[in-house]
Simulated assay, not measured.
Amino acid sequence: MATLTPEVTWAQRSSDSDETRNYLYVSINVADVPTSSADLKLTATNVSFTGTNLKGTKYHVSLDLYAEIDPENSKVNHSSRGVELVLRKKTLGIEFWPRLLKESKKVHFVKTDFDKWVDEDEQDEAQDDDYAANFGGFGEDGGLGGIDFSKLGGGLPGGEGLEGEEDDEDLPELEEEESGDKKIEELS
């Protein structure tokens, strides 16, 4: 059986003064690969993963990184969906890495994670602890990061549209022609 290369998605944050805000989000998207059959290695310049899923499909990827990371201060979360990494950049700097990989050649399996991406000039306005501290907003207690669901979906301001009210009074009646063909009334 052939070895497949998994999809890798990534995003980043940078800081020239706070090393805890200077990291990469890297996700290796391999579903149903148990931790027992996975081998993940982090070095200062490389991330490599090899694993076999429950159906027997083998995956392997080796990423030579653009610059150095700090493996000791990086985080790993292995789930049934894949492997999520928060890799601490070794060098402080406000500038983003121009790419994830050392080689400038585009590879088909590395993609930008736009759910986590923040533009370089907007990163101070973004929540900095969204993924790095809580892996995707899940709090330490496994909750959803303090979201108050009771305040969601409360209708429109002023109480309009609550309790399934239907307001059909303002809709015009449809007209039918004698021949049985339906005519769509133009609303202006």
Rank of each mutant, 00 (worst) to 15 (best):
A67N: 12
V107S: 11
G143M: 12
T112C: 13
S27H: 13
I147N: 02
G146A: 05
D141M: 12
P157C: 08
A44L: 01
L24V: 03
V8Y: 05
E140A: 15
Q12M: 14
A38R: 07
L63P: 04
L152Q: 07
R81W: 14
E186K: 05
D141R: 13
S62W: 08
W10G: 06
L85C: 03
G145Q: 08
G161A: 07
M1L: 02
A67Q: 10
N22M: 07
L87K: 02
Y25R: 09
D18V: 07
F138G: 07
D113C: 11
D64E: 14
A2G: 04
T20D: 11
V118F: 05
E165Y: 05
L85Y: 02
G158W: 12
G82T: 09
S74T: 10
K55Q: 11
I28Q: 08
I147T: 09
T3M: 05
D167W: 04
Y59W: 06
S80M: 12
E95G: 15
P6F: 01
T20I: 06
S37L: 00
E84R: 04
L101Q: 10
S48C: 00
V110I: 15
E7N: 00
D113I: 02
V26W: 08
N22T: 12
D170V: 11
E19T: 10
Y25I: 14
I94S: 13
E173A: 14
L85M: 01
R13H: 05
F114G: 10
F135C: 03
D141N: 15
D18F: 04
N77E: 07
E84A: 14
G180H: 06
D170S: 14
A133N: 13
E72H: 12
F49D: 07
G180F: 09
L156C: 11
T9F: 08
T57C: 02
G158A: 10
E178N: 15
S37A: 06
D113R: 05
F135Y: 04
V110E: 09
N22P: 13
M1H: 04
S15G: 10
G155L: 02
K41G: 03
P98H: 11
D128Q: 10
V86F: 02
S80A: 06
D121F: 13
E176A: 14
D113A: 15
E185I: 11
F135H: 09
P71W: 04
Y23E: 09
S36A: 08
R99L: 08
E125Q: 13
N73R: 14
A11I: 02
A133R: 13
E125C: 01
W10C: 05
V110K: 15
S188N: 13
E95Q: 15
L174H: 13
S17G: 01
R21S: 09
D18G: 00
S14L: 04
G158N: 13
E177Y: 11
L100R: 10
D119T: 00
D181T: 11
